[in-house]
Simulated scan of single mutants.
Amino acid sequence: MALFKTSNPALGSKAFQDAAGRAGAIDAADRMTLNGTVNRTGILLICAFATAAYTWRTFMQTHDPSDVSGLLMLGVFGGFITAMVTIFKQNWAPITAPIYALLEGLFLGGISAFFEQRYPGIAIQAVGLTFGVLLTMLVVYSTGLIRVTNKLRIGIIAATGGIALFYLLEMILGFFGIHFVAINGSSPIGIGFSLLVCAIAALNLVLDFDFIEQGVNYGAPKYMEWYGAFGIMVTLVWLYLEILRLLSKMRSRN
């Protein structure tokens, strides 16, 4: 078992340890730093916002889903493929991580516009809450209010895996006309489930911060700054989509 793990597939088992081992006696100036990872994360966010703004504006001009459906599919499948490539080819992250962010932006901009059309103002609320959670978890982690112990790590990994399996089961059963109405609806059960998933996604950020810090301590090579930023982006995309879903459930009750 690896010493450091995270439930984020992008920051999987032994990622930074293996990279550090490959780095060998690399010069200190060419090693991963926290500031460098933060800067790379900012670049990826800018990339995502740029393409999100494009699909958002395209849909808002015509309000015709067919105008952006192709871009959404490109974002979903292209983003998934790019993510898989990045996970297995970490040294490609300086190139693939920005591509991933651009592709995810296409999807996020379109899906946000769909929600915005039905629930005006929901997109900016979801964006604000996502960054609010990011900053809160960063403060919580940096001040030591939450310490990443093995028990906490295992618990979050188990919860994240359970959610992933549930979503997969839900998708498969959906092909046979079986739907979990209570969980997907705006009932207290549905809202409670979304709150739980948002909380698990937020806790994944703490694991990501801890894992990146371990990468810095191991002396991972410089390209791992991009890989660490990519891992944060994966979690933020998940968190934003879950918050968007939660807000839509709450709005539909009004």
Rank of each mutant, 00 (worst) to 15 (best):
A164H: 05
Y141W: 12
M171N: 11
A126M: 08
F80L: 15
A123P: 03
T136C: 09
L108W: 07
L169G: 03
V133I: 11
F175T: 01
L169T: 12
R147T: 15
A158T: 14
A126Y: 03
W92C: 07
L102H: 06
Y119D: 13
I99W: 07
F88L: 11
E170P: 00
F176G: 00
G162L: 04
I154R: 14
F176V: 00
I154L: 14
G161N: 09
L129F: 10
I111C: 11
E104I: 01
T130H: 05
K89A: 13
F175K: 05
P98A: 07
Q125T: 13
G105V: 01
I81T: 13
N91Y: 13
G110W: 03
I154F: 14
G78S: 02
F88G: 01
M84L: 15
I122Q: 06
F166K: 05
Q90L: 14
G177K: 07
L129K: 01
Q90H: 11
A93D: 10
E116W: 06
A126W: 02
V85G: 01
F176S: 03
A126Q: 05
G174K: 02
L173S: 08
T143Q: 06
A97H: 10
G78Q: 06
T96Y: 04
G110T: 08
S142H: 05
I154V: 14
L135E: 00
R153A: 12
A113I: 14
G79M: 10
G105C: 09
I163K: 09
F114K: 09
P120F: 09
A113V: 14
R153H: 10
Q90N: 11
R147V: 15
Q117T: 15
A164N: 02
G105F: 06
A158I: 15
I178L: 10
G161T: 00
R153Q: 14
L108E: 03
A97S: 13
I154P: 08
L102W: 11
V139K: 08
G105I: 00
F166A: 06
E104R: 09
F175P: 01
F131L: 07
M137P: 00
G121H: 08
L168N: 02
I99Q: 02
E170R: 13
Q117V: 13
L102C: 10
I172Q: 00
K151S: 14
G174Y: 03
R153N: 15
I124C: 06
F88T: 00
Y167H: 11
T86R: 00
I172W: 02
M137L: 07
M171K: 13
I99G: 03
E104P: 04
F107P: 04
I95P: 07
T136P: 01
L138D: 02
Y100A: 04
Q90C: 07
I95R: 10
A93R: 04
I81D: 04
R153E: 14
V133E: 02
I99Y: 03
E170F: 04
N150G: 12
P94L: 09
L106A: 11
M171V: 12
I124A: 12
I87Q: 13
